[in-house]
């Protein structure tokens, strides 16, 4: 039961992160490794506002997401935009994304150092639930906030004009262009949404564990697994995929060395690619 609870918490973190990653991967046509860097930056920005500027937690998170969005769009302007206009393929984009991941991680180390950092929160004892399941208040916050966030994202994608344009673009980019959707604008919004997703997931992960520059990279494999399992470009698929990956990783710890958790994500991802590359819910490719 405890493993189940852990799985749900991990699943929530991965789900939140995977929504942004799946839209970026689809709308920009490549798997963005730099997303790991965004996750880490999000966590450290929030930490800085909270621990050092001593702003309230929610304000810190919102500020951090704003900064992250600006950073992501600036990076796009400097790199991907010109590559897009030159018609660089997914491979070149991916390599630049990897370069950015290294660059961002290096910047985190230079700015904040490589030592472990934590949110300076009063330590509360874990709550004990039936079946002796222990969940900390932080973890309850994570689950609650993830649900709220996903609901808001759902509203955004379903109700707003730009949200619909994003989904249309994710469905079929050529068609979207023909229909007169301004794809460059959609791309800017995608980065904004990715910032929300990555900022929140990075923050949740940091809240549940701690901050280290490598944390983003370590979450990347489960994130890609969730994206692929859910079907690249399908935000709802990414949420389900994230849950499945989170749960399988944690439950596997019941009968395997816990250090093999990423291997579980890897196996699920590879099997998906071999059996049904379009993921559980069809879309993607």
């Amino acid at each position: 039961m405890q493993l189940l609870a852990n799985g749900i918490i991990m699943g929530a973190i991965i789900s939140v992160g995977a929504v942004g990653l799946t839209l970026v991967s689809r709308i920009l046509h490549f798997f963005y490794f730099g997303y790991a860097g965004m996750l880490v930056f999000g966590a450290y920005f929030t930490l800085t506002f909270f621990n050092f500027v001593e702003l309230p937690l929610v304000v810190s998170l919102l500020l951090s997401i704003g900064l992250l969005a600006a950073l992501a769009i600036a990076i796009d302007r400097l790199t991907f935009k010109s590559l897009r206009s030159r018609g660089t393929g997914p491979f070149g984009m991916m390599v630049v994304g990897i370069g950015l991941e290294l660059l961002l991680r290096s910047s985190v180390r230079l700015i904040w150092g490589s030592d472990v950092m934590r949110f300076e929160l009063p330590i509360k004892r874990a709550l004990v639930f039936p079946f002796d399941v222990r969940i900390t208040t932080n973890q309850l916050i994570i689950i609650g906030a993830s649900l709220l966030l996903m609901y808001l994202l759902h509203l955004f994608l379903d109700m707003t004009k730009i949200g619909k344009a994003m989904r249309a673009t994710a469905d079929n980019i050529e068609l979207a262009k023909v229909k007169g959707i301004d794809t460059e604008k959609v791309i800017m919004w995608t980065w904004g949404l990715a910032a929300i997703s990555a900022g929140a997931a990075g923050f949740f992960l940091a809240l549940d564990t701690r901050l280290v520059p490598i944390m983003g990279w370590k979450l990347l494999l489960p994130l890609f697994a969730a994206v692929i399992l859910g079907g690249v470009g399908n935000p709802y698929g990414a949420v389900v995929g994230g849950m499945v990956i989170g749960l399988s990783q944690e439950i596997s710890a019941g009968f395997m060395a816990p250090s093999y958790k990423p291997a579980v994500a890897f196996v699920i991802m590879t099997l998906t690619l071999l059996v049904k590359p379009s993921g559980l819910f069809g879309r993607g490719g």
């Binding site: 790199t79 010109s82 590559l83 660089t88 070149g92 390599v95 630049v96 990897i98 370069g99 950015l100 991941e101 290294l102 660059l103 961002l104 991680r105 290096s106 910047s107 180390r109 230079l110 490589s114």
Partner: peptide, 20 residues
Amino acid sequence: VQIGAVRLGVIGLLLILVIM
């Protein structure tokens, strides 16, 4: 300033520059 971090960044930058 850690050399390791600088190295990481330089290699990242090289990857970006080669493609661009």
